[in-house]
Nucleic acid binder design. Structure first.
Lengths: 249, 249
DNA sequence: TAGTGGTCTAGACCACCGA
DNA sequence: CGGTGGTCTAGACCACTAA
Protein backbone atom coordinates (compact mmCIF):
# COMPACT_ATOMS: atom_id res chain seq x y z
CA UNK A 1 0.00 0.00 0.00
CA UNK A 2 2.83 2.34 -0.72
CA UNK A 3 1.08 4.63 -3.17
CA UNK A 4 2.67 8.07 -3.03
CA UNK A 5 -0.53 10.02 -3.27
CA UNK A 6 -0.24 13.52 -4.61
CA UNK A 7 -2.04 15.19 -1.75
CA UNK A 8 -1.24 18.87 -1.58
CA UNK A 9 -1.79 20.51 1.77
CA UNK A 10 -0.49 23.12 4.14
CA UNK A 11 2.64 22.60 6.15
CA UNK A 12 6.33 23.31 6.22
CA UNK A 13 8.62 23.71 3.26
CA UNK A 14 9.20 20.42 1.47
CA UNK A 15 12.03 19.38 -0.79
CA UNK A 16 9.38 19.09 -3.51
CA UNK A 17 9.54 15.72 -5.13
CA UNK A 18 9.38 13.56 -2.07
CA UNK A 19 6.65 13.53 0.49
CA UNK A 20 6.87 10.86 3.17
CA UNK A 21 3.76 8.78 3.67
CA UNK A 22 3.44 9.73 7.34
CA UNK A 23 3.51 13.39 6.26
CA UNK A 24 0.64 12.77 3.89
CA UNK A 25 -1.25 10.96 6.62
CA UNK A 26 -0.64 13.85 9.00
CA UNK A 27 -1.88 16.33 6.41
CA UNK A 28 -5.02 14.29 5.76
CA UNK A 29 -5.75 14.08 9.46
CA UNK A 30 -5.18 17.81 9.90
CA UNK A 31 -7.58 18.40 7.03
CA UNK A 32 -10.19 16.45 8.97
CA UNK A 33 -9.50 18.51 12.08
CA UNK A 34 -9.98 21.68 10.06
CA UNK A 35 -13.22 20.28 8.66
CA UNK A 36 -14.44 19.56 12.16
CA UNK A 37 -14.81 15.81 11.61
CA UNK A 38 -13.91 15.34 15.27
CA UNK A 39 -14.76 17.99 17.85
CA UNK A 40 -12.21 19.28 20.37
CA UNK A 41 -11.94 16.86 23.27
CA UNK A 42 -13.30 13.96 21.22
CA UNK A 43 -11.23 10.82 20.66
CA UNK A 44 -9.91 9.98 17.20
CA UNK A 45 -10.28 6.41 15.93
CA UNK A 46 -7.58 4.09 17.22
CA UNK A 47 -4.29 3.76 15.40
CA UNK A 48 -5.30 0.37 14.06
CA UNK A 49 -8.61 1.66 12.71
CA UNK A 50 -6.95 4.66 11.06
CA UNK A 51 -4.26 2.43 9.58
CA UNK A 52 -6.83 0.10 8.07
CA UNK A 53 -8.93 2.96 6.76
CA UNK A 54 -6.02 4.84 5.22
CA UNK A 55 -4.31 1.75 3.88
CA UNK A 56 -1.00 2.23 5.70
CA UNK A 57 0.69 0.43 8.55
CA UNK A 58 0.05 1.23 12.18
CA UNK A 59 3.61 2.50 12.51
CA UNK A 60 3.03 5.13 9.86
CA UNK A 61 -0.17 6.34 11.53
CA UNK A 62 1.72 6.41 14.80
CA UNK A 63 4.42 8.63 13.36
CA UNK A 64 1.81 11.04 11.96
CA UNK A 65 -0.03 11.21 15.29
CA UNK A 66 3.23 11.68 17.20
CA UNK A 67 4.04 14.65 14.96
CA UNK A 68 0.59 16.12 15.60
CA UNK A 69 1.00 15.62 19.33
CA UNK A 70 4.32 17.50 19.16
CA UNK A 71 2.42 20.35 17.49
CA UNK A 72 -0.15 20.36 20.31
CA UNK A 73 -2.93 19.47 17.89
CA UNK A 74 -3.85 16.22 19.61
CA UNK A 75 -3.25 14.73 23.03
CA UNK A 76 -2.25 11.10 23.38
CA UNK A 77 -3.05 9.14 26.52
CA UNK A 78 -1.77 5.64 26.99
CA UNK A 79 -4.54 3.15 27.54
CA UNK A 80 -7.24 5.67 26.58
CA UNK A 81 -6.77 6.99 23.09
CA UNK A 82 -5.81 10.05 21.05
CA UNK A 83 -7.92 13.18 21.54
CA UNK A 84 -8.37 16.45 19.67
CA UNK A 85 -6.66 19.18 21.71
CA UNK A 86 -9.00 21.48 23.62
CA UNK A 87 -8.61 25.23 23.89
CA UNK A 88 -9.64 25.51 27.49
CA UNK A 89 -8.10 28.06 29.81
CA UNK A 90 -5.59 25.63 31.19
CA UNK A 91 -4.12 24.82 27.81
CA UNK A 92 -4.09 28.46 26.65
CA UNK A 93 -2.46 29.48 29.87
CA UNK A 94 0.54 27.25 29.43
CA UNK A 95 0.77 27.42 25.68
CA UNK A 96 0.15 31.05 24.79
CA UNK A 97 -0.12 33.09 27.97
CA UNK A 98 3.43 33.75 29.09
CA UNK A 99 2.89 36.34 31.82
CA UNK A 100 3.76 35.00 35.24
CA UNK A 101 3.70 36.64 38.65
CA UNK A 102 7.12 37.37 40.12
CA UNK A 103 6.23 34.85 42.83
CA UNK A 104 5.97 32.22 40.10
CA UNK A 105 2.17 32.05 40.16
CA UNK A 106 0.27 31.89 36.89
CA UNK A 107 -3.15 33.49 37.08
CA UNK A 108 -5.48 33.78 34.10
CA UNK A 109 -6.65 37.40 34.04
CA UNK A 110 -10.24 38.62 34.09
CA UNK A 111 -11.22 40.76 31.11
CA UNK A 112 -13.49 43.77 30.72
CA UNK A 113 -14.43 44.95 27.24
CA UNK A 114 -13.92 48.69 26.86
CA UNK A 115 -15.00 49.00 23.23
CA UNK A 116 -16.15 46.81 20.36
CA UNK A 117 -16.64 47.97 16.80
CA UNK A 118 -16.84 46.91 13.19
CA UNK A 119 -15.02 48.86 10.48
CA UNK A 120 -13.06 48.63 7.27
CA UNK A 121 -9.52 47.44 7.94
CA UNK A 122 -6.94 50.19 8.04
CA UNK A 123 -3.53 49.85 6.42
CA UNK A 124 -1.85 48.37 9.50
CA UNK A 125 -4.57 45.79 9.98
CA UNK A 126 -4.51 44.81 6.31
CA UNK A 127 -0.75 44.34 6.49
CA UNK A 128 -0.78 42.34 9.72
CA UNK A 129 -3.72 40.09 8.84
CA UNK A 130 -2.94 39.91 5.11
CA UNK A 131 -6.38 41.18 4.15
CA UNK A 132 -7.73 42.36 0.82
CA UNK A 133 -8.74 46.00 0.52
CA UNK A 134 -12.16 46.83 1.98
CA UNK A 135 -12.27 43.71 4.18
CA UNK A 136 -14.02 44.50 7.43
CA UNK A 137 -12.48 43.86 10.83
CA UNK A 138 -13.87 43.51 14.32
CA UNK A 139 -12.02 45.65 16.84
CA UNK A 140 -12.04 44.87 20.52
CA UNK A 141 -10.38 46.90 23.21
CA UNK A 142 -10.29 45.38 26.66
CA UNK A 143 -8.77 45.71 30.08
CA UNK A 144 -7.40 42.67 31.84
CA UNK A 145 -6.89 42.39 35.57
CA UNK A 146 -5.15 39.93 37.81
CA UNK A 147 -6.49 39.70 41.36
CA UNK A 148 -8.45 42.88 40.77
CA UNK A 149 -5.44 44.92 39.68
CA UNK A 150 -5.56 46.15 36.06
CA UNK A 151 -2.33 45.09 34.35
CA UNK A 152 -3.01 44.74 30.63
CA UNK A 153 -4.84 46.83 28.08
CA UNK A 154 -5.13 45.28 24.66
CA UNK A 155 -6.41 46.08 21.18
CA UNK A 156 -7.56 43.16 19.09
CA UNK A 157 -8.38 43.04 15.37
CA UNK A 158 -10.17 40.12 13.70
CA UNK A 159 -11.12 39.52 10.05
CA UNK A 160 -14.90 39.81 10.09
CA UNK A 161 -15.50 37.19 7.37
CA UNK A 162 -13.77 34.59 9.50
CA UNK A 163 -15.93 35.38 12.53
CA UNK A 164 -19.40 36.28 11.21
CA UNK A 165 -21.66 37.60 13.93
CA UNK A 166 -18.97 37.86 16.58
CA UNK A 167 -19.34 41.61 16.63
CA UNK A 168 -22.83 41.19 18.05
CA UNK A 169 -21.76 38.81 20.80
CA UNK A 170 -20.55 39.34 24.33
CA UNK A 171 -16.85 38.38 24.15
CA UNK A 172 -15.93 35.85 26.83
CA UNK A 173 -12.80 35.81 28.93
CA UNK A 174 -11.11 33.17 26.80
CA UNK A 175 -11.34 34.30 23.19
CA UNK A 176 -9.42 31.37 21.68
CA UNK A 177 -11.97 28.95 23.10
CA UNK A 178 -14.72 30.98 21.43
CA UNK A 179 -12.92 30.97 18.08
CA UNK A 180 -12.64 27.18 18.22
CA UNK A 181 -16.12 26.38 19.55
CA UNK A 182 -18.24 28.84 17.63
CA UNK A 183 -16.30 29.45 14.44
CA UNK A 184 -14.22 26.31 14.00
CA UNK A 185 -11.06 28.40 13.94
CA UNK A 186 -8.13 26.87 15.82
CA UNK A 187 -5.23 29.04 16.90
CA UNK A 188 -2.29 26.72 16.34
CA UNK A 189 0.66 29.08 16.79
CA UNK A 190 1.54 32.69 17.52
CA UNK A 191 4.36 35.10 16.74
CA UNK A 192 4.98 37.72 19.41
CA UNK A 193 7.20 40.79 19.17
CA UNK A 194 8.09 42.42 22.49
CA UNK A 195 9.26 45.95 23.16
CA UNK A 196 9.58 48.26 26.13
CA UNK A 197 7.55 51.45 25.73
CA UNK A 198 6.30 54.36 27.75
CA UNK A 199 2.57 54.07 28.46
CA UNK A 200 0.53 56.55 26.40
CA UNK A 201 -2.17 58.76 27.88
CA UNK A 202 -5.11 56.63 26.78
CA UNK A 203 -3.64 53.36 28.02
CA UNK A 204 -2.52 54.95 31.26
CA UNK A 205 -6.04 56.10 31.96
CA UNK A 206 -7.45 52.63 31.29
CA UNK A 207 -4.84 51.03 33.52
CA UNK A 208 -5.06 53.64 36.25
CA UNK A 209 -1.34 54.28 35.85
CA UNK A 210 0.83 57.33 35.36
CA UNK A 211 1.44 58.24 31.70
CA UNK A 212 5.02 57.60 30.64
CA UNK A 213 5.57 54.65 32.97
CA UNK A 214 7.53 51.79 31.32
CA UNK A 215 5.41 48.94 30.00
CA UNK A 216 5.87 45.80 27.97
CA UNK A 217 4.24 45.99 24.54
CA UNK A 218 3.39 42.58 23.06
CA UNK A 219 2.49 42.58 19.37
CA UNK A 220 0.97 39.17 18.67
CA UNK A 221 -0.16 37.59 15.44
CA UNK A 222 -2.12 34.34 15.84
CA UNK A 223 -2.14 31.75 13.04
CA UNK A 224 -4.62 29.01 12.25
CA UNK A 225 -3.85 25.35 11.51
CA UNK A 226 -3.50 26.35 7.88
CA UNK A 227 -1.09 29.11 8.92
CA UNK A 228 -3.51 31.88 7.98
CA UNK A 229 -3.54 35.04 10.15
CA UNK A 230 -6.50 34.87 12.50
CA UNK A 231 -6.04 37.60 15.05
CA UNK A 232 -3.80 40.61 15.57
CA UNK A 233 -3.44 41.71 19.16
CA UNK A 234 -1.35 44.44 20.73
CA UNK A 235 -1.12 44.25 24.51
CA UNK A 236 0.42 46.82 26.81
CA UNK A 237 1.38 45.28 30.14
CA UNK A 238 2.51 46.73 33.44
CA UNK A 239 5.33 44.47 34.58
CA UNK A 240 5.95 45.72 38.08
CA UNK A 241 4.84 42.48 39.67
CA UNK A 242 4.81 40.31 36.54
CA UNK A 243 7.22 39.05 33.97
CA UNK A 244 7.09 37.40 30.57
CA UNK A 245 8.55 33.90 30.77
CA UNK A 246 10.44 32.51 27.82
CA UNK A 247 12.02 29.08 27.96
CA UNK A 248 14.50 28.27 25.22
CA UNK A 249 16.05 24.97 24.42
CA UNK B 1 19.20 -7.83 24.80
CA UNK B 2 16.35 -6.29 26.67
CA UNK B 3 18.06 -5.87 30.01
CA UNK B 4 16.49 -2.99 31.89
CA UNK B 5 19.72 -1.55 33.16
CA UNK B 6 19.49 0.53 36.27
CA UNK B 7 21.26 3.50 34.81
CA UNK B 8 20.45 6.65 36.76
CA UNK B 9 21.04 9.89 34.94
CA UNK B 10 19.77 13.40 34.54
CA UNK B 11 16.62 14.16 32.59
CA UNK B 12 12.93 14.76 32.99
CA UNK B 13 10.72 13.32 35.68
CA UNK B 14 10.13 9.60 35.17
CA UNK B 15 7.29 7.48 36.44
CA UNK B 16 9.95 5.61 38.42
CA UNK B 17 9.64 1.94 37.78
CA UNK B 18 9.84 2.00 34.01
CA UNK B 19 12.59 3.43 31.92
CA UNK B 20 12.35 2.81 28.19
CA UNK B 21 15.44 1.40 26.58
CA UNK B 22 15.79 4.29 24.14
CA UNK B 23 15.74 6.64 27.14
CA UNK B 24 18.61 4.75 28.70
CA UNK B 25 20.49 4.85 25.42
CA UNK B 26 19.90 8.60 25.17
CA UNK B 27 21.17 9.10 28.71
CA UNK B 28 24.29 7.05 28.05
CA UNK B 29 25.01 9.02 24.91
CA UNK B 30 24.47 12.33 26.73
CA UNK B 31 26.87 11.12 29.40
CA UNK B 32 29.45 10.65 26.67
CA UNK B 33 28.78 14.14 25.33
CA UNK B 34 29.29 15.54 28.82
CA UNK B 35 32.51 13.57 29.15
CA UNK B 36 33.73 15.01 25.87
CA UNK B 37 34.09 11.64 24.13
CA UNK B 38 33.18 13.40 20.88
CA UNK B 39 34.05 17.06 20.32
CA UNK B 40 31.50 19.58 19.01
CA UNK B 41 31.22 19.27 15.25
CA UNK B 42 32.56 15.72 15.23
CA UNK B 43 30.47 12.84 13.88
CA UNK B 44 29.15 10.15 16.21
CA UNK B 45 29.49 6.52 15.17
CA UNK B 46 26.78 5.40 12.77
CA UNK B 47 23.48 4.07 14.09
CA UNK B 48 24.47 0.54 13.20
CA UNK B 49 27.77 0.80 15.03
CA UNK B 50 26.15 2.27 18.13
CA UNK B 51 23.44 -0.38 18.06
CA UNK B 52 26.00 -3.18 17.91
CA UNK B 53 28.10 -1.62 20.63
CA UNK B 54 25.21 -0.98 22.99
CA UNK B 55 23.48 -4.25 22.28
CA UNK B 56 20.18 -2.79 21.09
CA UNK B 57 18.46 -2.59 17.73
CA UNK B 58 19.12 0.17 15.25
CA UNK B 59 15.57 1.43 15.73
CA UNK B 60 16.18 2.03 19.41
CA UNK B 61 19.38 3.95 18.75
CA UNK B 62 17.49 5.94 16.13
CA UNK B 63 14.81 6.91 18.62
CA UNK B 64 17.44 8.02 21.13
CA UNK B 65 19.29 10.10 18.52
CA UNK B 66 16.02 11.62 17.25
CA UNK B 67 15.23 12.73 20.79
CA UNK B 68 18.68 14.29 21.12
CA UNK B 69 18.27 16.05 17.79
CA UNK B 70 14.96 17.49 19.03
CA UNK B 71 16.88 18.85 22.02
CA UNK B 72 19.45 20.46 19.73
CA UNK B 73 22.22 18.33 21.18
CA UNK B 74 23.14 16.68 17.89
CA UNK B 75 22.52 17.45 14.24
CA UNK B 76 21.50 14.71 11.84
CA UNK B 77 22.32 14.94 8.16
CA UNK B 78 21.00 12.40 5.73
CA UNK B 79 23.76 10.67 3.81
CA UNK B 80 26.47 12.11 6.06
CA UNK B 81 25.98 11.17 9.67
CA UNK B 82 25.05 12.48 13.12
CA UNK B 83 27.18 15.30 14.54
CA UNK B 84 27.64 16.87 17.94
CA UNK B 85 25.94 20.29 17.87
CA UNK B 86 28.30 23.25 17.66
CA UNK B 87 27.92 26.47 19.58
CA UNK B 88 28.96 28.77 16.79
CA UNK B 89 27.42 32.20 16.37
CA UNK B 90 24.90 31.02 13.84
CA UNK B 91 23.42 28.44 16.15
CA UNK B 92 23.42 30.73 19.20
CA UNK B 93 21.78 33.43 17.14
CA UNK B 94 18.76 31.37 16.26
CA UNK B 95 18.55 29.34 19.42
CA UNK B 96 19.19 31.79 22.23
CA UNK B 97 19.46 35.30 20.81
CA UNK B 98 15.93 36.50 20.29
CA UNK B 99 16.50 40.18 19.54
CA UNK B 100 15.62 41.08 15.98
CA UNK B 101 15.70 44.39 14.16
CA UNK B 102 12.29 45.85 13.38
CA UNK B 103 13.17 45.35 9.73
CA UNK B 104 13.40 41.62 10.42
CA UNK B 105 17.20 41.50 10.26
CA UNK B 106 19.08 39.46 12.83
CA UNK B 107 22.52 40.84 13.60
CA UNK B 108 24.84 39.36 16.18
CA UNK B 109 26.04 42.27 18.32
CA UNK B 110 29.64 43.26 18.98
CA UNK B 111 30.63 43.30 22.64
CA UNK B 112 32.93 45.50 24.68
CA UNK B 113 33.86 44.45 28.20
CA UNK B 114 33.39 47.29 30.67
CA UNK B 115 34.45 45.42 33.81
CA UNK B 116 35.60 42.00 34.88
CA UNK B 117 36.09 40.88 38.47
CA UNK B 118 36.28 37.92 40.79
CA UNK B 119 34.46 37.96 44.14
CA UNK B 120 32.49 35.94 46.64
CA UNK B 121 28.94 35.39 45.42
CA UNK B 122 26.39 37.70 46.94
CA UNK B 123 22.97 36.50 48.08
CA UNK B 124 21.28 37.09 44.71
CA UNK B 125 23.98 35.23 42.83
CA UNK B 126 23.92 32.33 45.25
CA UNK B 127 20.16 32.06 44.86
CA UNK B 128 20.17 32.29 41.06
CA UNK B 129 23.09 29.94 40.47
CA UNK B 130 22.31 27.64 43.41
CA UNK B 131 25.76 28.10 44.92
CA UNK B 132 27.11 27.11 48.31
CA UNK B 133 28.15 29.89 50.65
CA UNK B 134 31.57 31.40 49.92
CA UNK B 135 31.67 30.14 46.34
CA UNK B 136 33.44 32.65 44.12
CA UNK B 137 31.90 34.10 41.00
CA UNK B 138 33.28 35.82 37.93
CA UNK B 139 31.44 39.04 37.12
CA UNK B 140 31.46 40.52 33.65
CA UNK B 141 29.83 43.75 32.64
CA UNK B 142 29.74 44.48 28.94
CA UNK B 143 28.22 46.75 26.35
CA UNK B 144 26.83 45.29 23.16
CA UNK B 145 26.31 47.22 19.95
CA UNK B 146 24.55 46.51 16.70
CA UNK B 147 25.91 48.35 13.68
CA UNK B 148 27.89 50.60 15.98
CA UNK B 149 24.90 51.66 18.05
CA UNK B 150 25.01 50.57 21.72
CA UNK B 151 21.77 48.75 22.52
CA UNK B 152 22.45 46.31 25.35
CA UNK B 153 24.29 46.54 28.63
CA UNK B 154 24.56 43.30 30.54
CA UNK B 155 25.84 41.93 33.83
CA UNK B 156 26.98 38.33 33.85
CA UNK B 157 27.78 36.10 36.82
CA UNK B 158 29.54 32.73 36.49
CA UNK B 159 30.49 30.13 39.12
CA UNK B 160 34.27 30.36 39.24
CA UNK B 161 34.87 26.63 39.95
CA UNK B 162 33.10 25.76 36.72
CA UNK B 163 35.29 28.14 34.69
CA UNK B 164 38.76 28.09 36.28
CA UNK B 165 41.03 30.73 34.79
CA UNK B 166 38.34 32.47 32.79
CA UNK B 167 38.74 35.58 34.93
CA UNK B 168 42.23 36.02 33.50
CA UNK B 169 41.13 35.67 29.89
CA UNK B 170 39.93 38.16 27.34
CA UNK B 171 36.23 37.29 26.92
CA UNK B 172 35.29 36.76 23.27
CA UNK B 173 32.17 37.97 21.55
CA UNK B 174 30.45 34.61 21.78
CA UNK B 175 30.67 33.43 25.38
CA UNK B 176 28.75 30.18 24.93
CA UNK B 177 31.28 29.02 22.36
CA UNK B 178 34.04 29.69 24.89
CA UNK B 179 32.23 27.76 27.63
CA UNK B 180 31.93 24.76 25.33
CA UNK B 181 35.41 24.83 23.77
CA UNK B 182 37.57 25.72 26.75
CA UNK B 183 35.61 24.40 29.71
CA UNK B 184 33.49 21.58 28.27
CA UNK B 185 30.35 23.30 29.52
CA UNK B 186 27.41 23.15 27.12
CA UNK B 187 24.54 25.57 27.50
CA UNK B 188 21.57 23.35 26.63
CA UNK B 189 18.64 25.57 27.64
CA UNK B 190 17.79 28.94 29.13
CA UNK B 191 14.98 30.46 31.16
CA UNK B 192 14.38 34.16 30.48
CA UNK B 193 12.20 36.55 32.46
CA UNK B 194 11.32 39.80 30.70
CA UNK B 195 10.19 43.07 32.19
CA UNK B 196 9.89 46.68 31.10
CA UNK B 197 11.94 49.02 33.24
CA UNK B 198 13.22 52.58 33.27
CA UNK B 199 16.95 52.72 32.53
CA UNK B 200 18.98 53.53 35.62
CA UNK B 201 21.72 56.19 35.68
CA UNK B 202 24.63 53.78 35.35
CA UNK B 203 23.14 51.84 32.46
CA UNK B 204 22.04 55.02 30.72
CA UNK B 205 25.58 56.33 30.82
CA UNK B 206 26.96 53.10 29.35
CA UNK B 207 24.34 53.11 26.61
CA UNK B 208 24.58 56.81 25.89
CA UNK B 209 20.86 57.12 26.59
CA UNK B 210 18.72 59.35 28.76
CA UNK B 211 18.11 57.99 32.27
CA UNK B 212 14.52 56.89 32.77
CA UNK B 213 13.95 55.82 29.18
CA UNK B 214 11.96 52.55 28.89
CA UNK B 215 14.07 49.44 28.31
CA UNK B 216 13.58 45.71 28.16
CA UNK B 217 15.20 43.87 31.07
CA UNK B 218 16.02 40.23 30.31
CA UNK B 219 16.91 38.09 33.31
CA UNK B 220 18.41 34.89 31.92
CA UNK B 221 19.52 31.72 33.64
CA UNK B 222 21.45 29.29 31.44
CA UNK B 223 21.46 25.56 32.23
CA UNK B 224 23.92 22.84 31.29
CA UNK B 225 23.13 19.45 29.78
CA UNK B 226 22.78 18.16 33.32
CA UNK B 227 20.38 21.02 34.08
CA UNK B 228 22.83 22.73 36.43
CA UNK B 229 22.87 26.56 36.48
CA UNK B 230 25.84 27.76 34.45
CA UNK B 231 25.39 31.48 33.95
CA UNK B 232 23.19 34.24 35.27
CA UNK B 233 22.85 37.21 32.96
CA UNK B 234 20.77 40.36 33.26
CA UNK B 235 20.55 42.40 30.07
CA UNK B 236 19.05 45.84 29.68
CA UNK B 237 18.05 46.50 26.06
CA UNK B 238 16.96 49.60 24.22
CA UNK B 239 14.12 48.45 22.00
CA UNK B 240 13.51 51.48 19.86
CA UNK B 241 14.60 49.74 16.69
CA UNK B 242 14.62 46.17 17.99
CA UNK B 243 12.18 43.68 19.38
CA UNK B 244 12.30 40.36 21.21
CA UNK B 245 10.82 37.64 19.02
CA UNK B 246 8.90 34.81 20.64
CA UNK B 247 7.30 32.10 18.54
CA UNK B 248 4.80 29.88 20.32
CA UNK B 249 3.24 26.70 19.08
C1' DT C 1 -10.08 -8.65 30.63
C1' DA C 2 -10.23 -6.18 26.35
C1' DG C 3 -8.56 -2.29 24.08
C1' DT C 4 -5.54 1.59 23.84
C1' DG C 5 -1.07 3.73 23.07
C1' DG C 6 4.20 2.73 23.97
C1' DT C 7 8.36 0.01 23.15
C1' DC C 8 11.42 -2.99 20.70
C1' DT C 9 12.92 -5.70 17.05
C1' DA C 10 14.18 -7.20 12.23
C1' DG C 11 14.33 -6.45 7.63
C1' DA C 12 13.46 -4.14 3.20
C1' DC C 13 13.82 -0.31 0.52
C1' DC C 14 14.54 4.86 -0.43
C1' DA C 15 16.92 9.48 -0.60
C1' DC C 16 21.09 11.65 -0.09
C1' DC C 17 26.05 12.36 0.08
C1' DG C 18 30.84 11.98 -1.10
C1' DA C 19 34.67 9.53 -3.15
C1' DC D 1 29.51 3.06 -5.81
C1' DG D 2 29.17 2.23 -0.64
C1' DG D 3 27.69 4.23 3.56
C1' DT D 4 24.66 7.26 5.96
C1' DG D 5 20.24 8.56 7.82
C1' DG D 6 14.98 8.30 6.54
C1' DT D 7 10.82 5.64 5.66
C1' DC D 8 7.75 1.79 5.90
C1' DT D 9 6.21 -2.54 7.29
C1' DA D 10 4.91 -6.53 10.36
C1' DG D 11 4.72 -8.59 14.53
C1' DA D 12 5.62 -9.36 19.45
C1' DC D 13 5.29 -7.78 23.84
C1' DC D 14 4.61 -4.14 27.66
C1' DA D 15 2.15 -0.44 30.43
C1' DC D 16 -1.94 1.76 31.29
C1' DT D 17 -7.02 2.47 31.59
C1' DA D 18 -11.73 1.43 32.13
C1' DA D 19 -15.44 -1.56 32.60
Amino acid sequence: MNEKELAELSGGVESLGFRPLYRQVRDRLIRRLVDGVWAPGEPLPSEIQLAAELGVSQGTVRKALDAMAAENLVVRRQGRGTFVARHDEERIMFQFFKLVGDDGQRTFPQSKVLALSLARANAAERAALKLAKDTRVIRIRRLRSIKGAPVIVENIALPEPMFPGLAAMEPPNNLYGLYAMRFGVTVASTREQLKAVAVCEADAEALGATPGVPALKIDRLALSLERQPVEWRVSVCLTEKLHYLSELR
